[in-house]
Amino acid sequence: MDTKSKEEENTFNQKRLKVSSGGQMDMDLNSENSSNGFSTQINLEKLHKMAAELILLGKFLLKLLNAALVFVTDLLARILGSKLVRGHFHLMLSALVLFGPVLSLWVPKYSIFANSNNYLYRKFLKSTLGWTCIFSGSFILLLSISARHPRSLLLRHLSRIGVVGLLWWVCQRLLTLLEDASGTCYEPLTPARDIQGSSVQLLLHEDRTKLSCLKANMVWRGYEVSQDVLIVCLCCLLLVEEMSVFGPHLAQGKMSPGAPLRFIFLLCVVLLSLSMFLLLCLLAHFPKFPAQHLGGALGYLGWRVLYQGWYRLKPSWGCPALPGEGLFTTTDTHKPQSFKKPQ
């Protein structure tokens, strides 16, 4: 009996130990799970706080950038809209084309801009008109939306860009025909072929155009007009004319222009500065007299015919209208006296 009672007592103690250990294990698991949940909750709270701080920082930076954009565009709009720039920019551009080649006496010959294969010449120069049409067309579109122009007036303003593109296409074709008609292609002779020792060094090829002559690495001689200077001058004058209305638009104060309009205006100013720098590099590093002066004169003539002539006619004549036409309205006239273009 004593042995059985001892065995029963031992088994009972073992079961009680198992139950207590199991309970202890359950308590440990529960405490571990609760601690994990608490740490997860803490991590989520930290993430929410970090996200809120980042959002506040982003809003502050956006406000700072917007304030800088407003300040810069207001300053540039006042400069480009002033009578000094609107009335005398073409004179400054003419002086640059006239005296720019003189800078070739001082510019370094081994500069990166003295290389005709520079990316600025190979890519940007060929697409100057395209970038000008894109930026100025976007500016006209957003300005018309901001001023609540009717759709018909918006199309008339955008037609100015199409007229400039058509004018450039016609000028390219006419200049190419004139150069082919007035020039001649020559092939340089090697010493082996020049047996008689005469002074003739070139072989005439009358059936070649300028493009085919240059592709064959031959020499082309004839009258030439710099199409690069022509299109850059025309684009600079176009940008100044189109952007000069932004200052009077801001002066009205009826509706504050949005950030997209200001940003496009800033891009137009950057494009104008880059075009002026490109023109200066062409004149200083690759002077060609009188080809560049003829190109600048034709660009000035195109601007004079369009913005100082045709666009000033009445709308009944099929006129695309001046920049800002219909944007400024008063009780007396559709266009205030202070905004009229200088003659």
Rank of each mutant, 00 (worst) to 15 (best):
I42S: 08
H285Y: 15
R160E: 01
L294N: 09
L239C: 08
G247I: 06
S256Y: 06
F289E: 00
W317M: 09
S152D: 00
L44A: 12
H157K: 08
Q41V: 06
N217I: 04
S82A: 11
T40R: 15
L327P: 07
V170S: 02
R156V: 07
K341Q: 09
I145H: 10
F328Q: 05
L47V: 13
R16V: 10
L274A: 07
A291D: 08
S244Q: 09
M25P: 00
N118C: 09
S244V: 06
N118P: 04
K123T: 15
Y223E: 06
G100L: 01
R173T: 09
N117T: 06
G87Q: 12
P101H: 10
G197S: 01
Y311A: 12
S34Q: 14
G309I: 03
T209W: 04
A259T: 11
D194T: 02
C133P: 04
T128E: 02
S199F: 14
G299R: 07
K59T: 14
P108K: 01
G165K: 02
V107Q: 10
A216T: 09
T11M: 05
S136A: 14
M25I: 13
L282I: 09
D180L: 11
S31Y: 00
G58S: 15
K15T: 12
R122G: 01
L158P: 00
L84R: 13
L98A: 07
F124L: 15
D26G: 14
F99D: 07
T132Q: 12
T330R: 03
L301K: 04
D332C: 01
L294M: 15
H285E: 04
R221N: 09
H149L: 10
W220H: 08
